[in-house]
């Protein structure tokens, strides 16, 4: 395999990563508009923050090759991988503590987790 073929393969890999990542970003952003309440929008934001962002970063890593830029991209993606669930959980916990409950809730087992304080924040 000569250098040209490897370049072509890397280009194809990053085009695939960019296309799927961009599609997930657009679907997530569309879900932010379409879904009915905060709790369901958390999942749309989860799509954008995890799969969309990581795929686009991976596509950039294919283009950067084995350089310092790839190392920095790996650091950024590791950081997003750890902090995005943390901030999503922070939003969810704040909404839960503020007494906001999902619309049309099918099943609620909150009493088994928080026990007594369930009465304080009110039911669904």
């Amino acid at each position: 395999m000569d250098a040209f073929t490897i370049d072509l393969l890397l280009d194809i890999a990053s085009v695939i990563a960019f296309a799927t990542g961009g599609a997930f970003l657009l679907i997530g952003a569309f879900g932010m508009i379409r879904l009915p309440d905060v709790w369901s929008r958390l999942h749309a934001a989860g799509i954008m923050d995890t799969v969309g962002a990581e795929l686009i970063l991976i596509g950039m890593m294919f283009q950067a090759g084995l350089t310092q830029a790839t190392l920095k991209l790996v650091l950024i993606s590791l950081f997003l991988f750890i902090t995005s669930p943390t901030s999503t959980h922070a939003v969810a916990n704040a909404a839960f503590t503020a007494g906001i409950r999902p619309v049309r809730l099918r099943k609620n087992e909150a009493d088994r987790v928080i026990g007594e304080s369930a009465k304080r924040t009110g039911e669904s």
Binding site: W39, L42, H43, G46, I47, T50, V51, F81, S84, P85, T86, T88, H89, A92, N93, A95, F96, P102, E109, A110, R112, V113, I114, G115
Partner: peptide
Amino acid sequence: TLTPGTVTAESGNGHFLVH
């Protein structure tokens, strides 16, 4: 929380409250 479709909202009593 990282898996889309499920979000942890609260923890206690040896359980997680998952939306």
